[in-house]
Amino acid sequence: MASVMTKNRSPSRPKNLDLTTIRLPINAIVSIFHRLSGVVLFLMLPVMLWILQTSLRDEENYLYLVSFGDAWWVKLSLIALVIPLFHHFYAGLRHLGQDVHWMTTLQKARFSGRVVLWLDVISVLIFAIVIW
């Protein structure tokens, strides 16, 4: 499929692969971050399991974990960890809506993309306030 498409294109057509000048449309931004956040969440699974295990082992480990969470850089790391979680959650729900043909015109998809990004920001802010 892809090779057929490339064959039909003129080899001299202008190309721009300069990452500093490419501006992705909002739907592409939401989409690529959905993908990226999924990979990050997969890579973070052992960390989450370790936190769960340590928190349940005994009181000493639990208190160690809580005191560990007092450090500012741990809090920042936690916030960095929930950004992909929130984004994957909201963008995933948006995709599920699109699967059942909800808000699929370009204009509506742009709107729902903006809604997802705003929900990300609001959720992360609330999370940051709660843990600080």
Partner: peptide, 19 residues
């Protein structure tokens, strides 16, 4: 990736079992 997921499944099962 498949091995990792299998290990995580067993790991979580052990965590939940030992509560």
């Amino acid at each position: 990736m498949e091995i990792l997921l299998a290990v995580y499944l067993v790991w979580l099962a052990l965590i939940l079992w030992n509560i």
